[in-house]
Amino acid sequence: MGIDTSSVSVLIVTYNSDHVVEDCLLPLPSDSEVLVVDNLSTDLSIEKVTQVRPQAIVIANSSNAGFARAVNLAAEHAHGDYLLLLNPDARIEENAIVTLLRDMETDPSIGIAAPLMTDSHGAFKVLGAGFAPTIKNMALHGFGISRVAPRNQKLEGHHLYRDSNLDSVRELDWVSGGCMLVRRSVWEALGGLTTRWFMYAEDVEFCLRARQLGTKVILDPGAIAVHDFGGSSKDVAGSTNTVWIVNLYDLYCSTMASSRVACLVWKWTVASGFLIRAAAFRLQGIVRPSARRSADANVSRYRAFATALLRAAPARRATRT
């Protein structure tokens, strides 16, 4: 019996995405429902969508409502048994969608499935998938320990790497919302994505809640998607994005931490890891002048992560919104 891709509703959020959304739409199955919520783009995103996929359901927001609110709005209008969250700068072929569907139809305990995400240049080293942002897992990531020994599963942290043990389907704590297939029954049981943040960390939080329900979250390396990270909006500045680490800190303190002390330990542990990595890259730039430019960029990046985290305000306890 073949896999029915008409059971999939693809949910896409655009914001000034006319330069990438065509490549996102073209590979999708012709019988899959496509819903696009546009967050008040000032370019031709909506026109591009209707040109490439005339049958798509397009919802034009009157404001930039953020990622989670826009996805939740799209889900309200979707009819499929499966919801595929897909960034407009990501591309997934029909065969990869079929692979994920087969995983979920074979094992009803799987509630969320994701492909292996790469970029068009094959340069991705850090994957948008891994384990819960506990102090231990964030220390393994922040200090770069899991990067040094990526195939040692005992040392895997918040993120997996391209060199991690990906020889078969992996059951994880979270996968990226940039390309995530969700069983509708799980989506409805969880009430969709939290709108606590404008964007970033809502996919981690969603997956953790799914795990609490007892449903599996998997990454199938046999399904491949391409994501040119940061290309979904032409207005994205070139400065280092630190929102992700601040939101993860908020997620940990609001839903996972046992006390305020635990929050402080998390903050200082992760920030220390980033600062040590910055120092290591500074040394690399001195020892290897040929690598000075890339080393300096990494010094700035990790210092920015640490600085933003140390400045982050104490988190408030989470409430479902």
Score class of each variant (00 low, 15 high):
163 D>F: 05
108 P>F: 06
151 R>S: 10
125 K>E: 14
153 Q>R: 15
161 Y>G: 02
186 V>L: 11
126 V>F: 03
163 D>L: 03
188 E>I: 09
107 D>T: 14
162 R>E: 14
134 T>Q: 09
121 H>S: 14
135 I>V: 15
185 S>A: 13
186 V>A: 01
99 T>N: 09
175 V>H: 03
143 F>E: 04
191 G>C: 07
209 R>M: 07
150 P>R: 04
112 I>E: 01
185 S>V: 08
125 K>D: 15
202 E>Q: 13
114 A>N: 11
209 R>L: 02
164 S>H: 12
96 A>I: 07
173 D>M: 02
202 E>F: 11
205 E>L: 05
224 I>D: 02
107 D>Y: 13
206 F>S: 02
203 D>P: 11
142 G>A: 15
160 L>H: 09
161 Y>M: 06
126 V>S: 00
208 L>Q: 06
101 L>E: 11
122 G>I: 07
160 L>R: 14
152 N>L: 10
121 H>Q: 15
99 T>L: 11
197 W>D: 07
170 R>A: 01
180 M>Y: 12
144 G>R: 00
102 R>E: 13
191 G>K: 02
142 G>D: 07
105 E>V: 06
161 Y>E: 05
114 A>T: 05
192 G>F: 04
93 E>P: 01
168 S>P: 01
138 M>E: 12
118 T>I: 15
131 F>H: 13
156 E>V: 08
140 L>W: 04
149 A>Q: 06
175 V>Q: 10
150 P>G: 08
103 D>G: 04
